[in-house]
């Protein structure tokens, strides 16, 4: 029995079968590794975007870099504290304990970035805002979520489809917006 199985494995069909099985196993493993890398670490505080947006806080209040340069910036706890120190609930809420603790100990909040691109992509917020895009065009409606979520996979196809659309019929614009060197260097 064992011997027959071994002979079958050594036959051409057996080889192909082994390769297919091996490939599937490794692909699954690789996919698993890939997925596990995508899971976000927990945020330092369960920050409710919906609540803040609902209260009328502008995106650029906490992420002012977006209008100015490449990175929108993630706020320091000083920014949080600027408002929260005047809110009575800050002292009592369990949810806000990490903020109180950080403020007392002088520690940093190490935010976990949600919207990110690989480091061979050089994204710049400024021209996107200047071109009239709103934050929610890419980042989704923050009044609907607590912790920020990415509404779409930020891959190159997604970037390019919008770039092509935006170029319209302008050849020069099209060249600029689809040039490899615009984002990769």
């Amino acid at each position: 029995m064992v011997r027959r199985l071994f002979e079958w494995v050594m036959s051409p069909m057996g080889w192909i079968a082994v390769v297919i099985v091996a490939l599937s196993v490794f692909s699954l493993a690789a996919f698993g590794i890939y997925r596990s890398q995508q899971a976000l670490k927990p945020q330092p505080i369960q920050f409710p975007h919906n609540l803040h947006v609902g209260l009328g806080v502008q995106c650029l209040y906490c992420h002012p870099g977006a209008a100015r340069g490449p990175s929108s910036g993630l706020p320091t706890i000083n920014k949080c504290w600027g408002c929260h120190q005047q809110i009575a609930k800050t002292q009592t809420s369990d949810k806000l304990k990490p903020l109180r603790d950080a403020m007392a100990s002088g520690a940093n909040f190490v935010w976990v970035p949600v919207a990110k691109v690989p480091d061979f992509v050089h994204f710049n917020h400024r021209p996107h805002i200047a071109a009239g895009l709103n934050c929610e065009n890419c980042h989704g409606d923050m009044s609907q979520v607590e912790i920020a979520e990415n509404p779409q996979v930020m891959n190159m196809g997604w970037c390019l489809s919008c770039h092509k659309e935006r170029a319209g019929g302008d050849e020069e614009k099209f060249i600029k917006l689809t040039d490899c060197g615009t984002c990769h260097y």
Binding site: E172, I175, D179, C180, G181, H184
Partner: peptide, 15 residues
């Protein structure tokens, strides 16, 4: 590849 907009030779690392 050749950059059409900057007229430079690009090296696209991810490719």
């Amino acid at each position: 590849v050749h950059s059409q907009s900057e007229k430079l030779n690009l090296q696209v690392y991810n490719r």
